[in-house]
Amino acid sequence: MILEAVMLQVKQGMEGEYEKTFRKASEIISSMKGYISHELQRCMEVEGKYLLLVKWETLEDHTVGFRQSKEYQEWKKQLHHFYDPFPTVEHFEKVHLK
């Protein structure tokens, strides 16, 4: 399992519209091959700041399967205009301590 983590900064005053649009766009990502789950967290200290966490079966399910799909183009169309600056996406894997 891979965890995609994205810190998002939504343009001032657009937070309500963003959250509404994100709910709708969630149908896109959740329909993709390799998708496990996702959640969107709103920062309590910084207005307009969000953390998106998405679990994928493999890195390629996100970087190839989703990012190179027609569905991603729709995701991008619905959400990317809300962000300033444009977010950096990072991927994490679980550290097994035993």
Rank of each mutant, 00 (worst) to 15 (best):
I2D: 06
L3T: 12
L3Q: 15
E4W: 04
A5D: 03
A5F: 07
V6F: 03
V6T: 14
V6Q: 01
V6S: 00
V6C: 02
V6G: 00
V6K: 01
V6I: 14
V6N: 00
V6H: 02
M7E: 15
M7T: 15
L8N: 08
L8H: 06
L8M: 14
Q9G: 02
V10T: 06
V10K: 06
V10P: 05
Q12N: 14
G13E: 13
M14T: 09
E15G: 07
E17D: 14
E17Q: 13
E17F: 03
Y18L: 01
Y18A: 03
E19N: 08
K20T: 12
K20I: 07
T21F: 02
T21P: 04
F22Y: 14
F22H: 06
F22E: 05
R23S: 03
A25D: 04
A25L: 03
S26H: 00
E27C: 03
E27T: 09
E27N: 14
E27K: 11
E27D: 12
I28W: 01
I29A: 04
I29C: 00
S30H: 00
S30C: 04
S30I: 03
S31Q: 07
S31K: 03
M32P: 02
K33Y: 05
K33T: 08
G34E: 11
G34P: 12
G34S: 11
Y35C: 02
I36R: 13
I36E: 14
S37L: 01
S37T: 08
H38A: 00
H38N: 14
H38D: 12
E39D: 08
L40M: 09
Q41D: 02
R42N: 03
R42P: 00
C43K: 06
C43W: 10
M44T: 10
M44P: 02
V46F: 05
E47A: 15
E47Y: 10
E47N: 12
G48E: 08
G48S: 11
G48I: 10
L51A: 15
L51P: 03
L52K: 09
L52V: 08
L52G: 06
L53S: 05
L53F: 09
V54C: 04
V54A: 07
K55N: 11
T58N: 03
T58R: 05
T58V: 04
L59W: 01
L59A: 13
E60N: 12
E60M: 04
H62C: 07
H62A: 06
H62W: 11
T63N: 15
T63K: 09
T63R: 11
T63H: 02
R67A: 07
R67T: 10
R67W: 07
R67I: 11
R67K: 14
Q68G: 07
Q68M: 13
K70A: 13
E71C: 00
Y72N: 14
Y72G: 01
Q73S: 02
Q73V: 04
E74L: 06
W75F: 15
K77T: 11
K77G: 03
Q78G: 03
Q78V: 13
L79Q: 01
L79K: 02
H80Q: 09
H80P: 00
H80L: 09
H81G: 14
H81N: 15
H81S: 15
P85K: 10
P87F: 11
P87C: 13
T88P: 01
T88E: 15
V89C: 03
V89G: 01
E90T: 13
E90S: 13
H91E: 10
F92H: 12
F92P: 04
E93Q: 10
E93V: 09
K94Y: 06
K94S: 10
K94T: 08
V95S: 07
H96L: 12
H96D: 12
